[in-house]
Design a protein around this nucleic acid. Sequence first.
DNA 1: CCCTCTTTGTCCTGTGAGTGGGAAAAGTTG
DNA 2: CAACTTTTCCCACTCACAGGACAAAGAGGG
Lengths: 396, 396
Amino acid sequence: MRRMTARPANAHQARLLKLLRDGGPNSRAQLGDQIDLSRSKLAVEVDRLLETGLAVADGLAASRGGRRSHNIRLNPELRFLGVDIGATSVDVAVTNAELEILGHLNQPMDVREGPVAVFEQVLSMAAKLRATGLAEGFDGAGIGVPGPVRFPEGVPVAPPIMPGWDGFPVREALSQELGCPVMVDNDVNLMAMGERHAGVARSVGDFLCVKIGTGIGCGIVAGGDVHRGVTGSAGDIGHIQAVPEGRPCACGNRGCLEAHFSGAALARDAVEAAEQGLSEELAARLAANGTLTAVDVAAAAAAGDATALALIREGGNRVGQVIAALVSFFNPGLVVIGGGVTGLGHTLLAAIRTQVYRQSLPLATGNLPIVLGELGPTAGVIGAARLISDHLFSPA
Amino acid sequence: MRRMTARPANAHQARLLKLLRDGGPNSRAQLGDQIDLSRSKLAVEVDRLLETGLAVADGLAASRGGRRSHNIRLNPELRFLGVDIGATSVDVAVTNAELEILGHLNQPMDVREGPVAVFEQVLSMAAKLRATGLAEGFDGAGIGVPGPVRFPEGVPVAPPIMPGWDGFPVREALSQELGCPVMVDNDVNLMAMGERHAGVARSVGDFLCVKIGTGIGCGIVAGGDVHRGVTGSAGDIGHIQAVPEGRPCACGNRGCLEAHFSGAALARDAVEAAEQGLSEELAARLAANGTLTAVDVAAAAAAGDATALALIREGGNRVGQVIAALVSFFNPGLVVIGGGVTGLGHTLLAAIRTQVYRQSLPLATGNLPIVLGELGPTAGVIGAARLISDHLFSPA
DNA sequence: CCCTCTTTGTCCTGTGAGTGGGAAAAGTTG
DNA sequence: CAACTTTTCCCACTCACAGGACAAAGAGGG
């Protein structure tokens, strides 16, 4: 099949495509209810979408008391690729035009191997997904990278944890390789977009999405749009000082949040506790695997291990303290916690909530839910698909 | 003269009005260069503005090499009222449609006296300005209050420092009294809008405006728009914890930024230092006036008093630490420092800069000016006038 | 099964916004 | 005074869109 090359010709068509994407198949009449257009104009625009192949007819809709309407849906053969490059692993997924995940692969991998090696991996994963018959090609791809991105150009800038990526033309290179349009963004921003599209943040216009993985970052959504800042580094909260004169951090300062709590810091603390004999549970796991991760700490905590619980609580307090400051500043309507350490679950959440509710003013916290992300590892790839579909479903 | 009641009938007219407001008198041809409309259409819309009296003809423009053009300007009889209610004083100013200040009054006053007493004062100041012949009436008024505001309704909500104002229908009451449209916002947001309209932040789309007066607040401008948060309390950074287990604050917590550095805290510290005999300069001023304010500290510092300088530096460090966190989070293109304590000048600025440049990542601080506000006490009233003019110069 | 009512889809025309060209008016420059 | 510019006014033409008329298709009642 030839890939779709059409783009909406005007704002109406773009609007219709987004309605179909977010609301699934719809009858012409239902579309008419949601959009402010005369029936004649609507019919013309829908016909154009059918002509260009962006949408297709899909049988008859149920009757609403009169003549039955024809259903319209986005072309079911459209395929988006969502790529979420984390610090230690890559997620690649294929979605249809409604951003439903049709296939999803995850592989451990170190970003520090550099863009060339990583993209080789990504492309082979994409090829594997294609080989299963899920897709014959891709109409667009969204890529998330764990660092700041100059958004318009799709180029990482000065990424602390991924040297070698600085200035690498990710967007252009992948667009060339995949033969389709590509958009690049920070992985945390994509997670926020994912949760907003299909997760807990559906229909919330102002919220924060804190991702605690190997590092810590924060997606900022203001007025429905992602705020990226002037250099694309907005949300980079890992190096906010959480502890005056605290631990040294890789960035050269002391007391950075990331140095005190993150997947990496937690693992280090756990190993230390195990070696000092503070926790049998952790020691046993260390002996078994030779190493510890956040998952081990979560398991130990679930088993009631006091040391593990204390580690989580202390970390939660640190993060909560920073989030409390951000809540006072930003006054969001929701805070979503996501990333690798969400396995720590309720213990972590409780510690964070305690800090935030205690330290921020009642007006800001009064009706502020602080919840775990709903989509887990798929948030990033869904957000990536959403990014490119937003781009492609806008007037050219 | 009857007040203008016309409003722009469409987006083109609104656009033209804003061009005339921000760019001053302009010829039709110059307007044509700035707006994407055919000459014929432009002529029609300009004529309508002239008909409704929103704009007037204003002589001939200089020739650009051919026939001379007629100048168009906003009706010079339009008057906006800008009101900036601070914790301890009120500013009231009259502007023309181009937001130039024609008259400005300032009076000490305590907000805690409640809305009725304050508005009596404001109305009498407005009447005084009117009596000078500057205005025969007002076409709109913008009001800034020192606390969170539910923006669409123009009602203060749960303002910590102004009990008695909670839920008071400021917008409606003043609209009734003044007989013109009124908009209400947080005073810090208005300061940000003022600096953006006519001060250092001209043409900066993403910046923070930190106002250090009796308390501390922060105006947030993202993508050219003020971010107010879901409950209108965004930017309320005075109660972010700056010192773990620090001084008790009126809010019930400990270590709030505001408890450690603000006009009020600085005055308290200065008195304490004077009484302990740490500073002759401050002691002399205390003896002379019976009290000390930020102005005294500034004067003492200017005279080289070591204690005063130390107080300023320490305060600057505290604020700088918080701003550093906000810079990491928000990634602004500019930070403006304003409010009553700007008299502390370079010493304060240097302390803040040091902290921010040290604690935030280079990508965020690389090209980040941190400067004093340019407009001083007029920022608030200009912002207020801007607020109402933005409202009135939008399609109805 | 027939009749009426409702909903959906199509066609057609009127309207108003907006564009673009040309001519007249009003300048400047040499 | 002639040649050239710029502004302004006027007019015809295009285009998007609304809204009504009408046909098609189905539901439901007698």
